[in-house]
Nucleic acid binder design. Sequence first.
DNA 1: TTGTACGCGTTATCAT
DNA 2: ATGATAACGCGTACAA
Lengths: 350, 350
Amino acid sequence: MPSPRRPTITDVARHAGVSKGAVSFALNGRPGVADSTRARILDSARELGWVPDHRAQALSRSRAMAMGWIIARPARLLGADAFFPLFLAGVETRLSEVGRALVLHVVEGGPDAEAAVYRRLAAGRVDGVFLTDLCANDPRFDLVERLQIPALAVGRPCDPQRLPWVGVDDGTGALAAVRHLVELGHRRIAHVQGVPGLVHTTSRRCAWETGLREAGIPLGPMVTGNFDGLQGAEATRSLLAWDPRPTAIVYASDLMAIAGMQVLAAEGIQVPGDISVVGFDDVAVARLLHPPLTTVRHDVMAWGRAAASSLLAITDGEEPTTGWLDPAELVIRDSTAPPPKPLHTITAKD
Amino acid sequence: MPSPRRPTITDVARHAGVSKGAVSFALNGRPGVADSTRARILDSARELGWVPDHRAQALSRSRAMAMGWIIARPARLLGADAFFPLFLAGVETRLSEVGRALVLHVVEGGPDAEAAVYRRLAAGRVDGVFLTDLCANDPRFDLVERLQIPALAVGRPCDPQRLPWVGVDDGTGALAAVRHLVELGHRRIAHVQGVPGLVHTTSRRCAWETGLREAGIPLGPMVTGNFDGLQGAEATRSLLAWDPRPTAIVYASDLMAIAGMQVLAAEGIQVPGDISVVGFDDVAVARLLHPPLTTVRHDVMAWGRAAASSLLAITDGEEPTTGWLDPAELVIRDSTAPPPKPLHTITAKD
DNA sequence: TTGTACGCGTTATCAT
DNA sequence: ATGATAACGCGTACAA
């Protein structure tokens, strides 16, 4: 039995005894069709089980009805990324509301491969793109301009005039974390920063510096982590070698903090008794750790929703909302406490 | 300055002094064009910066060049899902190799909303779909058949004849976990199962039952967890109330295991000294816990790649590979050890 | 309301 | 064998 061809508006038109044009108008709810005719057309469409063909609609409307998100990173790292799934969930819920799809690409092959993917997407596969993982002098700004593809920066670009952007101010949360530690009495507060070059790595580190400066504390030791967080372990070991040892560590991600806590536990160092630990992201497991992790929470799903709304506005020719959302906020749990009595530290100073 | 219209094959044809058809043949590497002409056409295309318009290509080829993945779940839960990002990464790397995109949808509104999304995607937005989170009597099998959309089941369906499928046998790994505990001397092995109804929940629970049965141990207590793992905490508390208390707990996911370990730690129960813990998934943090978590690993990225390859084969009219991939395997770390000496247990029995 | 050109690449038909 | 011409896919939009 031959698979019955999907009905087209031509079929609907024939069935309703009108022209193709009338069907199109009726189905799109546009004026210029008598109510009785419109009803008849809609009935026919329903009866035949007509569904608009996405490819034809895309071609004739010159719109892909989809947004693109290109992630330039080894795919394997997605499994350890706190941002990715939640941002995606937020974007997706918003796009679904207006019948748009999300086209996702993970590309590993360096800038050229990345540019090739943007070029492909720009050729009618998507109507706009999200730019995440912003870095200083981000080459994608030139790229999307050259390709004439609408783009939204996720986070505040170094040159915020250049593109619409939607960001969550993580500096506020990171600063709150440092102040919290200072209030608890800490004076030797270390930082494990994230991947160098990323805008949010810088903003978190700067917040840490600001917090120390405003408390009149000299800048403590800082080491650099990476994407998958495993480096948090090594970073922590290197911090333990400092003399005097830090009494608190502010990590740029929960995953690095978790890796660090495991090192501390293995060394017999109590958290928070000996060293206080602060993470960043408030991942699902953060509250499930022992002790539950003090961290900085940002509402990544809301961020995704807002970003999607902004990009939709851009592609629909409206004025996009741009700027900061609610800032990240400190979530105090049990991994932070006053520093240990400084007895042995004084000895160590000699 | 007017935005210079993107060049079409008509422009290329004019530039090279040939017809549209010749350009199409040349660009697609099909015979019937003289080599010299072909070279001239390719030069023109390169010079003009021609890129195929995806919408036009999709319409005329009647292919969307994209695959769909519809996830019917509250979007928020994606942040706590070990499977999602890795499977996606695997799928995506494979699809990218052949210029296909992944169209992703997260839908929350129940079966009707889900069916509506499938209908939309089937209307030319994608060429095939992945079916994940299989459950018994999955209504999507009828749905995709009715919509005539190629589909691949991710995991082994209850009726494996009905659709091509690619699965990872998690039963083998779960069974290995139970055997490992039995060998260590455990006799009271509990299980915290996953979301009821899902195929993999059943297969893991059955493996646990098999392991106990083959060791001649009566079925221990079992409780039910959920998606986000937080219920792992409550489940664990309920297990602690059993008398005699289990000496080992096999969780259906790492996240539940982590939540459980936190409860155990809070109760002053040593892991693995008092109770051994086994997870499932081998998420990134599993090795970073204290103690590092014994768990069952499945290569989810490879699964994603294989699934993508199979679905590509289906939509390209080839014979898809179907069946099991490498089975999940036990990863022994430090959260499992022999049970405590049964002194007080004997007392408790009276 | 109808008729028809249009978007753009593909492909079948036809002429050389 | 080579290449031109035109029809096609399907919904949209404008002239009539």
